[in-house]
Computed example of a mutant assay.
Amino acid sequence: MKIEPQSVVSLTYDLYVNQEDGTEGLVESATQEQPLTFLYGVGQMLPKFEEHLSTLSTGDDYEFRLSAEDAYGQYDEEAVANLPKEMFNGNDLPEIGSTLPLQDNEGHHFQGQVVSIAEDSVIVDLNHPMAGQALHFKGNILNVRPATPEELSHGHAHGPDGHHHH
């Protein structure tokens, strides 16, 4: 079956990004045993990612690159926050390099990575870990099927065969 809106797509992928030495390194994979399964056309995935899959059908191999702009955006130097140490209530301070679950004033949840610890604050980088990175995807379309009415009402896929996970 060809991929179209309101179909459920299961695919494998290897995601490569450029390393500091200029080579590409594998950062994420979805395998045949653990495929990525998603409801196509509802905005779950990066729009350009879906656009590249729009002509494919079950069994097709694919490979494409997304520029940083088409993926998670350019790295934003401004997106760095100083969190007062009092926020941690005397708990152990997070380690540099660790990820903190944060929430903004509107209740949106996001992650920040601790970049350094100053005298009275913890400095956190709020950029997506892949901001500024071009993404190189390679994989295979394992399965395409029509979404079930339940999946459409929930707005997401319930796994490769449409049944709930137990």
Rank of each mutant, 00 (worst) to 15 (best):
E28Y: 12
E86L: 06
L46Y: 08
Q32L: 12
K48N: 10
G73T: 05
P47K: 08
E95W: 03
P47N: 10
E78C: 13
T23Q: 15
F88R: 02
L46D: 06
V80E: 08
Q74G: 11
E28G: 11
G73W: 01
D92V: 02
Y72F: 15
V42F: 08
G90K: 04
E63Y: 11
A30C: 12
A81G: 01
F64S: 01
H52D: 08
Q44D: 12
S67Q: 10
E95S: 09
G43N: 05
L53F: 07
P35M: 02
L93E: 09
L39R: 04
E63A: 15
T58Q: 15
E69Y: 11
D92H: 06
A71T: 03
S29T: 15
F88H: 08
Q32D: 12
A81D: 02
Y62E: 02
F88Y: 05
N82W: 10
D76P: 05
D76E: 13
N82R: 11
K48H: 07
N82H: 13
L56Q: 05
S98K: 09
L26V: 08
G43E: 04
S54R: 12
E51A: 12
G22H: 06
G22Y: 14
G73A: 10
E86M: 06
S57H: 13
F64N: 01
L26W: 14
N89S: 14
E95L: 12
E28L: 12
M45E: 14
G59R: 06
E50A: 04
G25W: 06
A30Y: 03
L26S: 12
T37H: 00
Y40R: 07
T23H: 14
D60V: 03
K85E: 07
Q74P: 03
E51Q: 14
G90Y: 03
I96R: 10
E63Q: 15
G22A: 12
I96N: 02
A79F: 06
D60E: 14
A79W: 03
L36R: 08
D61T: 13
L53I: 13
G41K: 08
F64M: 01
G25R: 10
T37S: 00
K48D: 02
K85T: 02
L46T: 03
D92F: 05
S67Y: 08
L83T: 01
F49Y: 10
E77T: 11
